[in-house]
Structure formats: C-alpha cells, structure tokens
Amino acid sequence: MRYEAPSTTREASALLANAKGKAVVLAGGTDLLARLKSGDIEPDLVVDIKRIDTTQSIKRMASGFRIGASVPCVEIGRSAALKRAWPGVVEAAQLIGSDQIQGRCTIAGNLCNASPAADSVPALIAAGAKASVVGTAGRRTVAVEKITTGPGKTSLGKDEIVESINLPKRPPRTGDAYLRFTPRTEMDIAVVGAGVCLTLNGKGEVSKARVVLGAVAPTAVIVADAANAIIGSRLEDSALAEMAAACEAACNPIDDMRGTIEFRTDVSGVLAKRAAKIAYQRAGGK
C-alpha cells in the first residue's frame, strides 16, 4: 500500500485515476481504518485529502455554507453561524461517535461511506445539501441523495472526490431537525434516523417539507408522501398521523439484534413526528 497526501484536489484525482489496483480516499479514517485493519479492504493506494486547502474550512457565502470535506465534525459543532442556520444538520453531525471520533470524522466521509445508518445523511438531504465533486474531467455539483446508491456503494467515479458539502442559505421561516433512536445514548449506531426540514407560509402553515428516513432501507429515503401529508397543515394531530403512516409505509428495514423490522417501522413514524415538531418550532411556528 502507498500513502499519498496531495495538496490539491486536481492532484488527488489524478492519483486516483492513475492508480493501478484499488485506490481509496482517506478523510477522517474513522470508517476506513477499521476496514483496513480487518482486511475488509486491501487498497494499493490511500489518498489522504486532509492536506488539501479547499477541504479544510467552513466558509459562509452569500449562497449558504461550504463545508470542506476534511473538516472534522467537532468543528461543525463549533460553528455558531452554521448552528443558527441548520441546527438539525449540526446536531446530526455531532451525534457521530465519541469525542475521539468527533475529532476526526467528516460529513463527506459519513456520506461516501454509504452506510444506511449514517447520521448526517438524512439531515443533509432534508436541508437540500449538495456535494461538490471533483474528478479528472472537472467539477460537478450533485444533490447529496444522488451520491449513495446502496450499502457501501456510491455513484462516484474512481477518480472522483467530494471536495465539500454545500448547504443553501436557509430560506425564511424554515427550520430543520434530526433525531435518531439508539439503544445507548452515546456510541451507538442509529436503529432509525429521521431528518425533517419545513418552510412555513405567513399564516404558519407548512408550505414546503422534506422528510428523510435513515437506517430503514438500503439508503436514506426521501418520503414524499410524508411531506405531502403535512403540507398545508399546522402539524395538527391528523396531519402528523398521516405523515407517520407514510413513513411506516416507506420503511424496508433489516431485522437485527438492535431492532426488529416491526420496531424500526413503528419508530420511524414516531421520530418523524417529533423531528417535524422541532423543525416547525425552529421555523417560527407556534
């Protein structure tokens, strides 16, 4: 195995493109190193992207936020501006692992690792985040939901790197939230995760919504029927019940020691309701 730590994304993607055998990107390494150690993957080349300037910071721009792909989640938690704009995304990023893991893990790595239970992903999708992807052919911007295609699988080419995750400017009267269920409060993997982002009209009715579930299907799922169930409502009980039913219908979970199919399905509706209420409040709804 060869280790390279280039200083530009262009060099990094050239290294990946020209690699003989298997080449992998290294960000925080909190997924990758365990897989290296277990022999689950045996790459010929590891390209560390943490020395690339453009991946190292959180930038606030007129169009929103640009979170560099090697910014560890602990720094996302320290960004007051980001917390004010997208508290759901920040909370989701901060749920990942312990303080030790927070010091390394990145949201781009969380996305590209393509675990169905990745905590930041439903929150990012709900907020309308986009990935800025660089390859030998240039740059493209892709909606976050287009990156993961199945457990451990992404739509990225061999030479492609996510350089940053971009969040839009928060629209007026908009709020987001992410909640997960885990048997243990800390250091556990989501049994179900629910991300919700809502926009209200001047009358306090939901005018736009996005409801995204994690850990209940091979990838995070955008539940359009759940969003439609609350659009036009002020989250009255009947609308919330309809939303929960739509979430349950969208679940296609696994059965394992941490949660049965029945449990995961049921909890998806409960969490989506709770997350929607938080998002509604954050959007200024009463």
């Binding site: 280790y3 560390d48 030790q100 010091g103 390394r104």
Partner: peptide, 20 residues
C-alpha cells in the same frame, strides 16, 4: 486516546504517516 494538534482522537484510527 492521544491528541493531534490538541484534538482528542483514537490513535488506532490514525495512520502513522498522518502525523507528519
């Protein structure tokens, strides 16, 4: 557990090469 540039991390999840 060790710190890298003051940040707490698991040294089992960091490559030696990354310490440069």
């Amino acid at each position: 557990s060790v710190t890298v540039d003051g940040q707490l991390v698991c040294s089992c999840l960091v490559l030696g090469a990354e310490a440069e």
